[in-house]
Each structure stands twice: as C-alpha cells, then as structure tokens.
Amino acid sequence: MIEFEYAAPTQLDDAIKQLTAAGDGARVLAGGTDIIVQLREGLRSADLVIDVKKIPELTQLEFCGEQGLHLGASVSCRRIYDDENIAAAYPGLADAVRIIGGWQIQSRASVGGNLCNSSPAADAIPPLITYSAQAHIAGPTGRHVVPVEEFCTGPGRNVLQQGELLVALTLPPQPSGSGSAYQRFIPRNEMDIAVAGAAVWVQLDKRGERIERARIALSAVAPTPVFAAEASEWLSGQPASEEVFAKAGELAKRVATPIDDMRGTAEYRTHLVGVLTKRTLATACERART
C-alpha cells in the first residue's frame, strides 16, 4: 500500500476542514471494508485517510417509533441488526445488513459507507431507497439533505462534493400495515456480491389484502441502485397476490440495464429482477400483516 497520513477527528467541523484541505487526496474511513481493499489494490489512492468513527454524530444510532430512525454514517451493520426494535421496524434494512459479508465484515462495515462506496451492487442502498431515506451531508458550505434515491450518480460515484461528508441517514417512521424485505441472488449462500438484488416496501390496507403503496428498488442491474418507479406505482391498489407480485416483477425488469460480467449475464440478471421482486413482495406483504 502507498503511504498515507491518518487523522481521526472527534469533531465534525475538524473533519470537514481536513477533508477540504486535503482535496482530492482525502479518503474517508468508516468501517474500512471497502476503502482499505481499494487502497491496497491501488483502485483508489489517498494522501490522507480520515477516520470518522470518533465523531459522535456519525456513530449515533437512534430509533424512536414516531420520528423514525437516525442512522449515523459510520454505524456498523452489526449494531443495526443487534437492535431488535430497529430490525423489527425496518426488516428490509435488517435483511441487507445481515448479509453484507460475513460477521467479521458486519462488525465494521457501515450502511453510510456502503452508500458512499456507491457500488451498483450495494446491498444496503435499495432498502434505503424503498424507505425514502434521506442522506444528511455536511460540507464546507454547510449542510444539506439529499434523498438516497438521488445519492449515487454512477459506479463508485455520488453527489458528494470535495470536502463533503455523509453525516447520517434518516428513515421515516413506519406506519402499521407496512412491511419491507430485501433479497439478493448470489451463487453461494454467503460471502458474495449480489448478481441482482431487490428491495421492497409495502403499505397494505387494514385487512392486509390490498397494496396501498409500494416502493421497489434494485441493485446490481444498473450503474447505480435504482428505484423501479413504474412497478412501484402500478402496485397501488392491487391485491396482494402472487399474480400481482409476478406482474410487478415483470414491470421492475424494465428499469434493469445490467452488464455481462463474471457474476452474471445481462439476460440472467434481468430475469432475476423479476424473480427477486416477486419473492420480496411476498415476504414484505407477509411481514406487513404481522
């Protein structure tokens, strides 16, 4: 690995100052499970690595049913699923953070880091999109908020400008009758990057029979994780049935523009979108009823 300097600021302002000063050569370290590999393999370079785990705001994890979830950018996957209340309220997010790497990875990897790494195949981003999560960004010019849906701009690229830092993610409170799920397809049962992934959030009517609102987001089938708008909108008012789930899966395929690579062909990935959307819809509806 090429030599770099290390800083572990304890104040957000200091972090932003250091980030700004270092310019192009600064890299943020949260869980490190992506950035350390990238630095080692020469995929990214750094003059300065800024460890943000000592900044209180970034490690804050607060859940209150009425206000929703405040998820500091460097909170580990492990802390999310270890909290039974959070896992129960946001099961789609819990699904994702339980399968990011093995346990050793989950002890360190953060959802914020997963977002900032902006991989098309990121597991945690599709659930965030389905919850309409907001990304809270701080930078030299102040703070602003971006919907997670708009955060990623390409493979490994996102809206963060030089000197800016993701501080937290906020997820809205979950109304009763809502449910969510995330599934990815991988050839093994663990320790793989998604060939394709689908997250679903649904709101059912009081009888649990009809879908009032739904949001579907996909991973690994486009340059960024994508929101499947047409499929999501079409589901409003539809009965929660296998036929409907399958149709939604067909509609979701329309936003898939995958590539062929060693993890799968474009055709296979597109096909998997249909299968995974159908399956996650079934799981999310089941969860919405309980």
Binding site: Y6, A8, L29, G32, T33, I36, V37, R40, E41, V49, D51, K53, S76, R78, G101, G102, W103, Q104, I105, S107, R108, M191
Partner: peptide, 29 residues
C-alpha cells in the same frame, strides 16, 4: 487473502470479530 474474504485473520476488536486485514493498526488506539 488480505482482503476480508477468508477470515483466517479474525481477531476480536472491542468485543466483536473482525478481519484484522481490514483494520488499520492506527484505528486500534
């Protein structure tokens, strides 16, 4: 493997198992 895929370097860091190849030693302060 030195990139977090094999687990042979697993140690406990503050009570949690981690791949020590994916932790900078300076983080252990």
């Amino acid at each position: 493997c030195n990139n977090g895929n094999c687990g042979a370097c697993t140690v406990m860091l503050d009570g949690l198992p981690v791949n020590s190849c994916l932790v900078l030693a300076v983080e252990a302060e």
